[in-house]
Every structure is written in structure tokens, then in C-alpha cells.
């Protein structure tokens, strides 16, 4: 079961790094569409894999075993706030990463030419990266409380 937790953390972090790479790629003056497509797909794939492995661990191990220990311990807020928010905010990330990747594939040329359209894409990529960092840090707090 620990394997699933480790896979969830490592692959999730790879997803956050890929999202950050997408954001940095968008901020460059000269866009590399090939890089954005690859990094965007890597982020999407990592979040999907992290979703499945994390979900397996969450339902079969965290809920029945870890959650009661945290709730009865000295930091019950680690579950009540950080875990509850994290498990739902995570669901946004694969959806937004998918949209970014589709836009890179289908509307890449427009991102290069239309600065205002590019600004909207940058805002979306920033949000995915920020959510990834928030979710990762929440995981650290929850692990610390266990």
C-alpha cells in the first residue's frame, strides 16, 4: 500500500514540475510549441496517474486507518482542513491541465500571435502551478500530523 502513496507523491511532484515548466515556457518571448505540448501532456498524464494511485491509497488505507489516528491525535485540523480541502482541490488540476494541453495542440499558433489570449492561458497555467504547490504542501502537513 505504501507503494501507492510513494507513487502518488513522486508522480504528483513530477506533475507540478511539468506545470511550472509550462508556465516558464509561456513566459518566454519566443514560444516553443513543441516544448509546451510535451510539458503540458506530461503534467496532464502525471496528474491522472497521481489521481488513481492517490485515490487507491486514500480510499483503502487513509480513510479506514490513518484518518482516525489523525482525528484522535493532537492535530485533528490536519485532516479537517488540509486533507478535506486538498482531496477536492486536487480534482481541479487534471481538468485544467487537460484544457491547457488541448489548447497548446489545437490553438498553439494563436497563443503565439494573440497577446491577450496568451495572458489568459498564462493565468490558467499559474493557477494550476499554484494549486499543485498548495496540494503538495498540504500533503506535507498531513504526513507530519500522522
Amino acid at each position: 500500500m505504501t507503494t501507492f502513496l510513494i507513487a502518488h507523491i513522486v508522480i504528483g511532484l513530477i506533475g507540478v514540475m511539468a506545470s511550472y515548466a509550462v508556465l516558464m515556457g509561456l513566459l518566454k518571448k519566443r514560444l516553443s510549441l513543441a516544448f509546451l505540448k510535451t510539458a503540458g501532456f506530461a503534467a496532464f498524464l502525471a496528474y491522472i496517474t497521481s489521481w488513481v494511485t492517490g485515490g487507491y491509497y486514500y480510499v483503502l488505507r487513509y480513510g479506514p486507518v490513518v484518518k482516525p489516528i489523525i482525528k484522535d491525535g493532537g492535530s485533528p485540523w490536519a485532516h479537517a482542513f488540509f486533507m478535506e480541502a486538498k482531496e477536492h482541490i486536487f480534482l481541479f488540476m487534471p481538468v485544467l491541465a487537460f484544457v491547457l494541453w488541448v489548447l497548446f495542440v489545437a490553438a498553439g499558433a494563436r497563443i503565439e500571435k494573440d497577446a491577450r489570449f496568451k495572458s489568459a492561458i498564462i493565468a490558467l497555467a499559474s493557477l494550476v502551478t499554484a494549486l499543485g504547490i498548495y496540494v503538495a504542501l498540504s500533503g506535507v502537513v498531513i504526513s507530519g500530523a500522522h
Partner: peptide, 10 residues
């Protein structure tokens, strides 16, 4: 694509 749709999603 309406730029507004991307902002709406954001």
C-alpha cells in the same frame, strides 16, 4: 476561441 471562455474557466 472566445478569450472570455478561458478567463471564465480561470
Amino acid at each position: 476561441i472566445p478569450r472570455g471562455l478561458v478567463w471564465l474557466l480561470f
